[in-house]
Design a protein around this nucleic acid. Sequence first.
DNA 1: GTCTATACAAGGATAGAC
DNA 2: GTCTATCCTTGTATAGAC
Lengths: 228, 228
Amino acid sequence: MNDLSEATKLQPSPPGSDSTGAVRARNERDILEAAERIFARFGYRGASVQAIAEEAGLPKSNVLYYMGSKRGLYIRLLERMMARWNALLDDISVEDDPAEVLEAFIRSKMQLSRRHPEGSRLFAAEILGGAPFLQEYLCGELRDWVQARARILEQWAEQGRMDPVDPVSLIFLIWSATQHYADFEAQVLGITGKEEIAEEDVERITHFLTRVILKGCGVKPRESAVHS
Amino acid sequence: MNDLSEATKLQPSPPGSDSTGAVRARNERDILEAAERIFARFGYRGASVQAIAEEAGLPKSNVLYYMGSKRGLYIRLLERMMARWNALLDDISVEDDPAEVLEAFIRSKMQLSRRHPEGSRLFAAEILGGAPFLQEYLCGELRDWVQARARILEQWAEQGRMDPVDPVSLIFLIWSATQHYADFEAQVLGITGKEEIAEEDVERITHFLTRVILKGCGVKPRESAVHS
DNA sequence: GTCTATACAAGGATAGAC
DNA sequence: GTCTATCCTTGTATAGAC
């Protein structure tokens, strides 16, 4: 009986006990969600493990038990946000239609900011503080991504399918305009006097940005005759 | 002699002693400058009085001696930034030329971000955290300012001097696009591979934004015939 | 597997020496 | 007018009870 009782004791993630695994999964999820909110609000240093624990409805020690350390938790959240970001960066080519690509770019970026406002603000706070954890990513992976898109935009301009505007500035313009509604949500709500940014607002803003930016860059409407 | 020696002792801001006043003025200036950097980097909670003191090259107690409290120092910095902001908000009227006004708006906003990047980031961090100290300002003063400008933009659209775009979205677009180069400076530098944003870059970006946004809103070039 | 108790550093703020 | 010493709170992290 001693062997059996010892065997049934809870151990680090035992293979059979699905209820235990479920608790862990739920707690981890709650902690990640709570931490994203708190880090977004107060930044890395300003956020306390205590505050994250309270937001998650768990004792402080559990947060550290599940996540190891405050630093590790923060890095994990940043990586999760980068993953979401990469997920919508489908490849484009010179053959694609500029109008379609830019519209899809604006739309998907707006959706990302809308679906993950806390993650968006977490990222913003990281950059605002000088990007101590993301410098490598910015100078490497992201830089390559931007330059690849910039080349395509330049080629479109050479082909006369849009104005010869600085492509990097254009990418920054789209980023900032879309990100604004997540990062400066408090300002947007204060000025518009609304309680929240509704789905119809997002649609309206997306249309506005698409229209102004595409027209502003002289993007030619798709050559409808070619495909039909 | 006793009276005289007592009279020459340093007292709280004695009227005649200009050297003492000079020290105070210099220390206050140093503290405000240092605090703006630290608050911008770490947010209100993340910033420590210790870090501000080190940045200013003063002992921690002096910061509290001069500024009273961390909270008071923070509010003072926010108010200073609002004052800078208000300084460039000259009144406009329906009679003005849309192109000139929008260009001046973009240019002055870019200059503000350029001249006071730390103040700009301080403001951004405050909004990012839900604007706990600025909610009143956003819902009051700033809201009125935006709505007044929005009305003028609408009238311009009615007169056919620009496209009938949503005026508030347009103001947000200009704000976000210009503010981006201060708030996301770390990202901009990482991606462009530069050490700093030079004056010529600012000029180039200003031109880009003016061109794209004015064209995107269908702003008619000034009626040159009228004045000549 | 979960939580209380605790160690030890750093936080804001003040009193008092110089 | 300036700075050292100190108070008390809060911070992160861990050890050990349940």
